[in-house]
Design a protein around this nucleic acid. Sequence first.
DNA 1: GTTACTGCAAACTTTTTGCACGACA
DNA 2: TGTCGTGCAAAAAGTTTGCAGTAAC
Lengths: 154, 154
Amino acid sequence: MPVPTDEVERRVSQLATSLRGSGLRLTHQRLEVAREIAADESHPDVETIYRGVRKRVPTISLDTVYRTVAALVDLGLVGRVNENPGPTRYDANRERHHHYVCTRCGLIRDVYSDTLNGIEAPEQVSGLGTVESVRVHLRGVCKTCERKGNDSER
Amino acid sequence: MPVPTDEVERRVSQLATSLRGSGLRLTHQRLEVAREIAADESHPDVETIYRGVRKRVPTISLDTVYRTVAALVDLGLVGRVNENPGPTRYDANRERHHHYVCTRCGLIRDVYSDTLNGIEAPEQVSGLGTVESVRVHLRGVCKTCERKGNDSER
DNA sequence: GTTACTGCAAACTTTTTGCACGACA
DNA sequence: TGTCGTGCAAAAAGTTTGCAGTAAC
């Protein structure tokens, strides 16, 4: 299930507004990188974003994608996802959510749950520092990998 | 608070037994890498393990540490921790636990909580695949960073 | 017209791999 | 003694940076 077109456009225009608002220039490349991330709910890495954007902007370079993604992360418009070793992946979904991760293929899916959202930090944690977010990571084997029955541990 | 000596030895001997049991040779290097991870609760990366082991085994090479750590992970004796971008970190603590992560300095502390252990996957997740583990990630700013008041985002 | 952004190339960091010698069982 | 593991070196993968030309404002 792809991200609905209007949701993509909503995200892109929010990204555009925020870029402009923070004094950054709204270039063709940035807009297309933003669009690519907004339309991809598979939590793509930079290489994947690069391949996608190149279909529309064949001259874009990989380092521009790196720089743009870093800018979007700094602005808080995109989240970094480090569930697995290997390339960092990115997430345009800024709604509160949790993650399901397949330990075989690395698939990451967003999980929405009021129950999980309601979890509070144990009081002992206040001795360590402030708590700004509580995220649940569910790990297992996805349906596709289970069907394949293979054991490519990633 | 360092890991108590007897707990370190308990972990090391378990690692030794498992290595032998799986047909791998019990070398000086492997034993010392295992000891280093077992004694370090800061979730060290390979470079840190390497520096620690070199005090006792000055001739060990970095790639041996990489290979040993990979073997320990494959045997399920050590966990991989990917809370942040940058080098992968490792965890000798195999008890069920959760993580508190400082978003400024990258500190990772283990969190034990029966409440958090009791969390169950929402039923919608069963549509995605099996669930083998449920871990809670608490992110915030640790006491030390808060005191410093600096903003080195990491 | 300025200044920030891009593309290129090179560097850097983290991790993996091939090979010959040395050490464990 | 045979085989697996180690150290060395080189390569691969992922990411960052300096610079000169180009495009946004």
